[in-house]
Design a protein around this nucleic acid. Structure first.
Lengths: 357, 357
DNA sequence: ATTAGCACTCTCGCTTGATGAGTGCTAACA
DNA sequence: TGTTAGCACTCATCAAGCGAGAGTGCTAAT
């Protein structure tokens, strides 16, 4: 059954008021503050109907009404209007987000900081997932007679290295040969592919030194690939939630903080979420049943995909926050675009918006 | 004025009891639990004296006594006996601390996790400070015609790199020349030294391409050096404190959590602390006046120095915790020793102990 | 269909009084 | 002179009781 125009207005008013004040809102205050042209009694009747339909709840008999998850969902999907960022927020983002294609980590952490400062919520940001990253080249560099550096370069300019200490000395020749060998074998293949695929044994078994060296290097090589696949998660503004009335109970605050102690679990959760701006409200989350989680994706060269997000109570300014996140991710994608490339695929200012679960 | 033997016994008993139960301890319960051979009345008199001397305080008239910072200081300096780790804790450390010289970050994070699991407090661990690290060599590697990788290798095997994107193409020649040039100029000098010192302009001004390239590379070089100097700080078990009775007030919990939101400030504080096991209690800390902070240092090749630490309320098991930290840092130092080197200088099992402020 | 009126419910803040733990003092004791 | 028993006193804590205020839900009038 659809809601009448007036019911929508009332629901909207209740949500607005509750988001603002965090207190159950009564019929009288709605009638006073929002000019709906009807008396408190009428509003009461409508509220009662809305409650029956599951859009409102009642903490106790003589308290006002509180929007349910269902109400927020309706609000996000239908009622909410896109908000223009305040000049201050825009300036803040433009000035402080000194994104640089060469410094993912720093930039991403900055983005998380910004996000939590602007929204006053807990926020996080992940470096791009590198599943699709391909290997550009591999190099082995000598340090001393038993130490060498393994360096793996990806096509997005991602560089990772490890220092290896061998049990037996290596020869310069073997080193160079293995470098070339590995580069030829793996160039152009994705990290995932290499890691899951068979280790290639094609060359080098004929030369003794090479095969020994390879035996020592391969385990580190694989482990380093794994490292490259790992995304980094930066979390900021966790303590912001202490200022919210919903977290004045120590238990709820504790539960909240404990969510983030499990960083890798959290990372997995986040990776599983869809593209664009995604909002999940309360019960829609399997854990964190009284939180809302909003994530948004940014792009690197329209290929690699990373996420930023905020977490807070279900009571939050959905319109503002989704707008901020959209602006911020567009900004990030823009900065992370390869200078030469034209805005392709997903990156940039294409207005993607996918708000449902 | 020195304390009598009996006063020490009573103080010791009060501390033990309070550390255990977190509740003001009364004369009667002392007399019952600890067999001092005197009546509650006598204990009351002694307590009164101890309070006058500043070792005890009184939350209110009719409550028991609580040890003051001064009492804990006395305890740590004089009364406390070294504790043997439980077999379980030892096994835990030995098994799980898979330290590897090549993977500082991972190992250090592991150490922090372990520490918080064993102590049930908030803990942290820092990667070694690299002030004394010297540069082994510098290499510039071509990626494509405008992209290159700057790689700086330190003498402890520390490798850092950055990808650079230039405005103008470079030549292979210039690249190699600059690599050599920089290596020659900086090899053997400490990071600090290079960063603070004059930029060397001696060579290369004669060749146009080289000088241009150098102009583009130097800023990144310096920034990368800074990155190398930065220590990483890992914090674990922050939420443990929610289980402690002193942090059931949301305000105190908030204050505590906020300390750690300021990661770099905290890092600075920690770097300033001395070698070995250092305990600072309550007011001895300029911030965190109701916390105790215990840090301990580990060594890499007896040269680089890193820290681990725990933070909690002043009420904590000083004997156990300092012992655990000593064991853990010795273990770390052992793992981080260069295979060839004999246990030199500070590293290893030398029983350093410096508990005062 | 809307509204005014009114009884009813429930929370919140305040006070009150009982309880109990613990001290501090005094006087007796060894 | 140091130690102890006894006792009055203090203070936090808890539960109960009460009034005020906010808000609902129902009914009857418009």
């Amino acid at each position: 059954m659809d809601l009448s125009e007036r019911q929508l207005q009332i629901l909207q008013a209740i949500i607005t008021d509750y988001v603002e004040n965090a207190e159950p809102v009564g019929s009288r205050s709605i009638a006073k503050k929002y000019d709906l042209g009807v008396s408190p009694a009428t509003i009461r009747n409508e509220m009662s109907d809305l409650e029956e339909m599951g859009y409102l709840t009642h903490p106790h008999t003589s308290a006002g009404r509180v929007p349910s998850d269902k109400a927020y969902r309706l609000y996000v999907n239908e009622l909410m209007k896109k908000k223009n960022l305040s000049a201050k927020d825009k300036r803040m983002i433009n000035d402080r987000l000194s994104a640089s294609r060469d410094e993912f980590d720093r930039t991403i952490r900055h983005a998380a900081e910004l996000l939590s400062e602007i929204t006053h919520l807990a926020s996080f940001a992940m470096t791009p997932a590198t599943n699709e990253e391909t290997i550009s080249f591999i190099r082995l560099l000598p340090v001393d007679e038993r130490t060498l550096i393994l360096m793996i370069v990806g096509d997005s300019g991602n560089v990772t290295n490890t220092t290896l200490r061998l049990n037996v000395p290596y020869t310069q020749e073997a080193l160079e040969l293995l470098s070339k060998n590995m580069t030829v074998s793996y160039k152009g293949r994705t990290l995932d592919d290499v890691l899951k695929g068979e280790i290639i044994h094609d060359v080098g078994s004929d030369i003794e030194a090479l095969s020994t060296l390879k035996g020592s290097v391969m385990p580190s090589f694989l482990r380093t690939l794994e490292d490259m696949l790992n995304v980094n998660l930066y979390m900021e503004g966790m303590t912001n939630i202490f200022n919210l009335p919903e977290y004045t109970s120590i238990d709820r605050a504790r539960d909240f903080m404990e969510l983030f102690a499990r960083k890798d679990w959290f990372t997995q959760k986040m990776l599983a979420r869809g593209e664009g701006v995604v909002v999940t409200i309360g019960e829609e989350n399997d854990t964190m049943k009284d939180c809302t989680l909003i994530t948004a994706t940014y792009h690197v060269d329209g290929k690699l995909v990373g996420k930023i997000g905020v977490i807070g109570p279900t009571r939050m300014k959905y319109d503002e926050i989704t707008s901020i996140m959209e602006y911020l991710t567009n900004n990030l994608s823009e900065s992370f675009r390869l200078p030469g490339s034209t805005g392709d695929g997903n990156a940039g200012d294409k207005k993607q918006k996918k708000l449902d679960k």
